[in-house]
Design a protein around this nucleic acid. Structure first.
Length: 787
DNA sequence: TGAAGGTCGCTTTTT
DNA sequence: GCGACCTTCA
């Protein structure tokens, strides 16, 4: 029997072995939070305090859920399938599939992702002739999701004015449309599941009796609805083991409510509050910086990280003249780090907003350093993949109008906007789906639509006995998608992705433990399967906890989805990785948000300027600045050994050059942990704000005070050379070189101290004998070389 | 029916 | 500055 408790520190040990009572674990960054969560489950089972079927563990991302399952089965030889480990949405989906009748849903209900939802809303508004200018579909989407996350149905929303009344009406119409089509959006999965439990006492009692152990990861990120769902599931008797960090709450903008931690403490009368403050990730100076920064936040539960590692390296700070100079410095430092033997994937460049990645990417490309950008299009979001999925959804559920509208004329089959209009009119008239309305459309439009209906019918018939991978492969071909992309000039990648979809289906079948020949569209018989059957309708007050018996009679096991339904859920709930060159050893580029939960030996936090980080929009939001500070805290605590902070005096943003002052966060960090690689300019000596350049010559832009930290003043002893990056290359592009003597008609003689950009964007920094240092646009300024 | 051209917006994002 | 999305036109 493995000793699960070995090597735990006292706080971790205490958390893992708590009695089965409500507990809140305040887990600082890098304090072994996931380890505690996993060890807790393993310990409960090992001690005989819990059987796998009584455990429910919920996370926010599929990645976290997978990690938990993986590490758990490595820790104990248990079948994790008996447990319910997954995301809020994944678990709710599972419950709704099991009790679809009680939840008022068709067996084959489909899940709309955010993009599907928006197109469903647009379709709805078009049908109702709503002015998209006055009531933008995006705003309605936000309104609906927000209401659902507050647990509010249309009848529950307060009508305050006519504008709001319209939104409530549209919300209601949207819900009716979803109901008719048999589709649910993301928040609906949660709300529907909440209502299922709230309105069905026997069912609620069943699950409350079953899930004696509820564990929640990243509790600070839960929204109101998720908290209510947890409360319902816990009932009077069950304990919730909540793990979270209020200092890392960075998702308020999408409904996360840090207040849930306080509420949980009070409402559940939490007697066990344990703080994990021992940090196993970062060196001392880095932690000092994090601790002192976050101490500036007023509303905290309070906690301070400590480490046994030494001080380590100081935090290096660099002030650049421009965003591209900042990028140049970063790349030089990265090159130096790589030269010392550091793996590229141990280096991360973080930024507040995605737009900042461009300059850095550009500079990395020029330097020939491989990198990977996180974010962007993910596999199941690609258009060709979504097209194929739409056909599969139509096979499974013909009423899914979102899927129907997406592919009725793709590949093109002569069904134009007019035909679609006729069809939607008919569908509204007969209150049926678009597919069902086809017979009511007459004429040429009617016959081409009938052709499409026949295609889908044929596909449904042909795939009746096929396995899931066969079904997908058949669909890709029979839909005409394969031919279409085959003939498309740049369709090869898309064709490969469609093949990849077939592979994904095969992988899904094998991971779920289906036989390879299991028909995709029937409830599979899985001899020896350990998934616990659920009550279709629980009767009476007697509730029995069913301990994972083998499934023998599919009719009694409504919780088993067909492989196709499972795969379609999987595609909606897990959008997959983004396609960036995975596998290669590459420098990691991402937003600070995306970096949460990750760690790197060396971290660059870039663009530390007022307006950017903290972001200017945060000033308008309640608690906005504190959230920005938490974001900075998250960023700092990603670093293990080396932390670099940088900012630029000017930056190209939205096609305009902006002049920013350095972030206030610099003043909130302990100064003795910082090592300025460029001279630190005191706040009072600094100019700030925007400059519209009025009154200044058009051909140059410089700080009005004529001062700047020149690269010749660079005093660091960095691993990297001075930011005289790629000078040779610049020389070739601009015709000038750094160090060259030049003459300007207005400013006279000077020396080039830096070059950047190319073509019409090329700029030179020149130190003039009488006018100080200035940046000049080479396309405008007439610089002449002095022999 | 697709290409071309114009307009809009632009913080962070998982499910 | 750039991409996404919408409309327009041949």
């Amino acid at each position: 029997m493995p000793d699960l408790l070995a090597n735990l520190n006292p706080e971790q040990h205490a958390a893992v072995t708590l009695p089965n009572e409500p507990a809140l674990i305040l887990a600082g960054a890098g304090s072994g939070k996931t380890r505690v969560l996993i060890t807790r489950i393993a310990w409960l089972i090992q001690q005989g305090l819990a059987s796998p079927a009584t455990v429910l563990a919920v996370t926010f991302t599929n990645k976290a859920a997978r990690e938990m399952m993986g590490r758990l089965s490595a820790l104990l030889p248990i079948d994790t399938r008996g447990m319910w480990i997954g995301t809020f949405h994944g678990l709710c989906n599972r419950m709704l599939r099991a009790h679809y009748r009680d939840a008022g849903l068709p067996a084959t209900f489909q899940i709309l992702d955010t993009a599907d939802q928006l197109s469903a809303i647009k379709r709805l508004m078009k049908g109702l002739n709503i002015d998209d200018e006055k009531y933008p579909a995006k705003n309605l989407q936000y309104f609906i999701n927000n209401a659902k996350e507050q647990g509010l149905r249309p009848k529950d929303v307060d009508v305050t004015d006519n504008f709001n009344r319209k939104f409530v009406e549209l919300y209601e119409a949207y819900d009716q449309q979803c109901q008719r089509e048999g589709v649910v959006d993301f928040p609906e999965l949660l709300l529907r599941c909440y209502e299922l439990l709230a309105h069905n006492p026997p069912l609620r009692a069943h699950y409350q009796a079953r899930f004696r152990h509820i564990l929640v990861d990243e509790f600070q990120d839960t929204n109101k609805l998720q908290y209510a769902w947890l409360k319902l599931l816990a009932g009077q008797n069950n304990a919730i083991f909540a793990v979270g960090d209020d200092d890392q709450s960075i998702y308020a903008f999408r409904g996360a409510n840090v207040g849930n931690m306080r509420d949980f403490e009070e409402e559940f009368r939490v007697r066990h509050l344990i703080k994990l403050e021992q940090n196993y990730r970062s060196h001392g100076y880095i932690l000092d910086a994090a601790n002192q920064l976050i101490a500036h936040n007023a509303r905290r539960l309070g906690k301070n990280l400590r480490t046994d590692a030494g001080h380590g390296e100081p935090v290096r700070v660099y002030e650049a003249a421009t965003d591209s100079q900042e990028a140049g410095w970063i790349v030089e430092e990265i090159r130096a780090l790589i030269n010392t033997g550091l793996a590229r994937h141990e280096i991360a460049v973080l930024y507040r907003s995605n737009a900042q990645s461009r300059t850095i990417e550009h500079t990395l490309v020029n330097a020939g350093i491989p990198y990977r950008v996180y974010g962007g299009l993910r596999f199941f979001e690609r258009q060709e993949v979504k097209h194929a999925l739409a056909y599969l959804r139509l096979i499974d559920n013909p009423s899914d109008d979102t899927a129907f509208a997406r592919v009725v004329n793709f590949p093109a089959r002569g069904i134009g906007a007019r035909s679609i209009e006729q069809l939607t009119d008919a569908a509204r008239l007969y209150n049926c789906s678009m597919a069902a309305a086809i017979p009511y459309v007459a004429g040429k439009a009617g016959s081409s639509l009938a052709g499409f209906a026949n295609l889908i019918a044929k596909m449904r018939a042909e795939t009746q006995q096929m396995s899931l991978p066969e079904t997908v492969e058949y669909t890709v071909r029979a839909s005409g998608l394969a031919d279409f992309y085959q003939n498309e000039r740049e369709g090869q990648d898309r064709l490969e992705n469609l093949q990849e979809l077939v592979n994904a289906a095969a992988a899904f079948v094998s991971e779920e433990g289906y036989g390879l020949d299991t028909p995709a569209r029937s409830i599979p018989l899985r001899p020896g399967a350990t998934s616990a059957p659920e009550l279709a309708t629980a009767a009476g007050d007697e509730v029995e906890v069913l301990d994972a018996p083998a499934i023998t009679d599919p009719a009694q096991n409504p919780d088993v989805m067909t492989p196709l339904a499972g795969f379609l859920s999987h595609a909606s709930l897990e959008a997959g990785d983004n396609q960036a060159q995975a596998g290669q050893d590459a420098v990691q580029l991402m937003t600070v948000h995306a970096a949460k939960g990750l760690e790197f030996t060396a971290v660059f936090i870039t663009g530390l300027e007022e307006g950017l980080f903290p972001h200017e929009n945060s000033a308008m939001e309640a608690d906005g600045l504190e959230e920005e500070r938490r974001l900075m805290y998250v960023a700092i605590t990603r670093a293990k050994e080396r932390l670099y902070l940088s900012f630029a005096q000017s930056r190209m943003l939205h096609g305009q050059t902006r002049y920013n002052i350095r972030s206030r966060f610099f003043d909130e960090l302990p100064q003795d942990t910082l090592k300025w690689l460029t001279p630190k300019v005191e706040a009072g000596a600094r100019w700030g704000g925007r400059s519209d350049n009025a009154g200044w010559g058009r051909d140059w832009f410089a700080r009005p005070d004529g001062q700047r930290a020149g690269r010749d003043e660079y005093r660091g002893e960095p691993s990297a050379p001075l930011p005289a990056f790629a000078n040779e290359q610049r020389a070739a592009e601009t015709g000038f070189r750094v160090g060259q003597q030049v003459f300007h008609t207005k400013f006279g003689e000077g020396t080039i101290t830096a070059l950047e950009g190319s073509g019409t964007d090329a700029k030179a920094q020149v130190r003039f004998k009488r006018h100080g240092e200035k940046w000049l646009a080479l396309a405008v300024a007439k610089l002449q070389p002095v022999e």
